[in-house]
Amino acid sequence: MISFSHVDKHYRGWAQSEVRALTDLSLEVRTGEVFGLAGPNGAGKSTLISLLLGFLGATRGTVLIDGLEPRVYIEANGVGYLSELVNIPPAWRVCDALERYALLAGVPQADLSGRVSSVVEQLGLEEHRRKRVRQLSKGNLQRLGLAQALLCEERVIVLDEPTHGLDPLWTQRFRDIVDGLRAPKRTILIASHNLDELARVADRVAILDHGRLQRIVDVRATRNDVVRGAPYRLVVQLGDDHVKEQFPGARALGGGEHELHGESLESINAGVARLIERGVLVKALFPVHSALEQQFREAVGAGAENGA
């Protein structure tokens, strides 16, 4: 559905200093999947999205949506898009803004008010309908941005930092919305700093750093993977003193929490079994980082080394 083939994007400033935002990036996003895009600040995520929407042109390489140049595809079909900064004229009223975007999205006039009401309800904006955009809080503005992206049943949806500014309740609802948007013929691309978010909603996640694709993580396949040597958090309620005897390398964090480093899963299991035998009450044991987070750390570390 979406393909980047050997894409370079270089910016040249007035002083002729060249910034390489993306270098030799190749990527395929399949129809029907939710694809995540992760990377530290300046990794090239926003540039990649601007290239995908045709707002920027590649210095080298090709970007295609459904086999078409991005602007050709978008001007014929449109995409559901939420930008990192929600840029809507501040003087517009919420309902007017949605009506305008719905017209431009091609919602037939007869369905216009119904479609606007539907997204207003879905995103909980009923009480803000008559407010001007400048009167909205950060979270409500973000929800308005999301609402305008969902006005039409688009086949391609691009969400840049969609949960930025949302409270935990709406972050959870956002996951439900993405789940509701999943369809065999729809492709959803989500760029986010929030790895936990991506681990929950995405099928695959591309990790970018220094403008290069470091790796693609199949989140579904690795969701329950155990990374050898990854740190684990052990929380005990009784018998705190015995943990150090069993795990000499453990770092006490206070409140019965300990971080275990460099242990294999087998040794951790055996150690915990012995602790229980001694009457220690184990409250929780979990990996400090998710598999995706672990992969991200490795990939970004590698990127830093390559970039240096």
Partner: peptide, 25 residues
């Protein structure tokens, strides 16, 4: 990887109604 099957997306209906948007302009 499994993807829940939802209703098929409708075929693309219209381009943007730019002419009507002229009233807003």
């Amino acid at each position: 990887m499994s993807i829940p099957v939802h209703e098929a997306l409708p075929a693309r209906r219209h381009r943007g109604l730019v002419g009507l948007y002229g009233l807003w302009q």
